[in-house]
Write a protein that binds this DNA or RNA. Structure first.
Lengths: 216, 216, 216, 216
DNA sequence: TATGAATGAGCATTCATTCAT
DNA sequence: TATGAATGAATGCTCATTCAT
């Protein structure tokens, strides 16, 4: 009804205020979930962290579960980086891997704690798993499969079971992330100065662990 | 109070009865945690599954958390298979990897659901992470590191950053397991007929993904 | 603030606007109370039904209870039909009873649902009962008592305990109404084609149920 | 498992303890509902009135609604007096009416307050009305209809529309009860010394209000 | 006046834990 | 030891009411 300032296309001041409040609450929820886990976090905690009354939460989210879902979806948005990866086909593999991966690491690191708060619920509750898997994991894997196929066609990667290899690759990073989440000090440190680590991992993935003299 | 039979060294009938009861409750807890997750499981559920009164649980375990800890520890016992692995150094790598891995898969598959029930709590609660990490993850990684070092010394594996490589390896399996837990149908199917998959993974790990003509 | 037109004696345009708004909200409240009961109705419901913001309600009514009281009072206004009844003394009893009763039935039927929504609160909350009883029930009964006295004086009704008889009479209709409210299908149907029913009831009231041959 | 005392057929001590506790809570609920109405009564109130912890209520009743339903059902048991009424056919009408009615009044008076607490919910909530109507009202009316038919056959009551007459009769008492509940001082007093009132009502019902000289 | 977002007291219900039997 | 009824603190959520715009 009131969009008299030119602040944005299709967003009134009211809509922006509402979106901001929603975000404020969502961030608070992410913070508290991260600190105490989903079950350990009370709506009171979240309200306090958001500097809002408890009831206000319910003006923006149906219930506590809806907060979790919204958080999952916001993490899912990381996926919109897909384009970069398609574009990455131009680069040679080493450079692409290193650059893209470092880039990705930056992003994931920030959300790692939030993910660690969400993952438990994801594992424990099938009804949350399906939408998450469909909207986050499936597209990411599909994109990597296309990427790998292109590299194979281009002769950079040898022909192999692409779905499995991609999942092994994705799994490796998921697993390394999990080691961090579980508190492994080695990976935690490595995560801190990632350039060398990423290079070494690239090496492992490209050439495997076999000694030179040996034959497969 | 009663050790009049010679039934075992250091275990009276009473002690065995107690141990059996404890195990009965623990198995029930594992079952219920698996089905409903730690938070979804009530002590009432567990008592019913164990065919025991609610109060009886507290004669064997301090509280609900203690059940979780005991379960974590019992999963940690998988580690006692370590000897096999040390012995495995005699075998050539391919055979060792395949055999050991298939073996392991059998065990892990059985406990996978229980782990999926426990992991969320592990991730959410730092005070549980530390003992778990120390008693399960650290020894497993250390053992693999020793194993890898031996293989390097033996010239089967090329010299590399062993701690990182081992963690990448462990992470890969953790990550693949997580994809199963998250519901990825491809890995779930692959998990079902593991022989081929294991072989392909071995291949990937040994030789990497690089096309033959290329040079590192 | 603005009474510049001569629109009515003592009512400015503003006052009329205010009264209209009040009525609009009150009707909405009646509707929602009827549908969901007093406790089931939220101020949000009422605001939506009145096509008004929630806060606006509080510009016209102190609180939710005040809405109920206003509704009670508006039902009490049915009482202003009293004059008709006094006038009814001219008619012979049968005609008066039938005509007046049918008339009344029309009115009551419309408000029956609203009454069913209000009555529960009336029964449950003493502080509401008193004003209602004083403003609605007492005058109605008093008027009927005068009417009955007149009929006795006129020789149409035999001398009897007027207060009791009137209450038995009033009670009978209240009770029949309650049977409808409780869902009795027989009375509900009878309510639908009232002419015959009213005649039969008149008969019962006038002559009782005793068989002709019998003596009191 | 333990019925070693001869205290009752098929009731163990445990069962009796449980039944007693249930009754204790139910009585407390009746009391609190009566005082504050269903919505005004909190589970905390009920627990305090029953001298029990809040949680204990839920060991005996599913939820607050179940308390209400149990109360409704316990009032429905008044109906088991039916036999008396069938037997009452032996007595002459006047005596039967007076005796039975006085008897009934004693009972109803005691439960009147509880009924006043329940009725509002009955009126407001259709899902409660149906079972109540089916289990309490329908049988009572059916029984009175049979009774009336028998009296007609016996020549004590003139032929009339039995269903309507019975409902008018039932309605009259319901209505009088409601006037009491609404606080009418006259009926309240009359209720206190019922002998005369009952006789006068009998008179009204039997002979109607028509003056002797008049003709229908 | 009208609005509707913010508020927070209040409530039904759950469930781990205790303890008398 | 085993039992399971009793406990009551803790929690998610509702909704009448307020008040800044």
């Amino acid at each position: 009804m009131d969009d008299s300032d030119g602040s944005g296309p299709g967003t009134t001041r009211r809509e922006r205020r509402i979106a901001a409040r929603r975000e404020q609450i969502l961030q608070a929820a992410a913070k508290v979930f991260t600190e105490k886990g989903f079950h350990g976090a009370t709506t009171k905690d979240i309200a306090e962290a958001a500097d809002v009354a408890e009831g206000t939460i319910y003006n923006y989210f149906e219930n506590k579960d809806a907060l979790l879902l919204a958080l999952i979806n916001s993490l899912a948005m990381l996926n919109q980086r897909e384009q970069i990866m398609e574009a990455g086909l131009q680069q040679d593999m080493s450079r692409f891997f290193v650059e893209h991966f470092l880039d990705r690491l930056q992003i994931v690191s920030q959300d790692m704690d939030a993910l660690a708060a969400i993952l438990p619920e994801l594992l424990a509750r099938p009804e949350l798993r399906e939408p998450y898997f469909a909207s986050v994991v499936t597209p990411a894997i599909a994109m990597l499969e296309r990427h790998a196929q292109a590299r194979i066609a281009h002769g950079e990667i040898r022909p192999l079971d692409v779905p499995l290899a991609v999942r092994a690759f994705v799994g490796m990073f998921l697993g390394l992330w999990m080691l961090v989440a579980l508190g492994d000090p080695f990976v935690q440190e490595a995560w801190a100065k990632p350039d060398q680590v990423v290079e070494k991992l690239f090496d492992l993935i490209m050439d495997g662990i076999r000694a030179k003299g040996e034959e497969s």
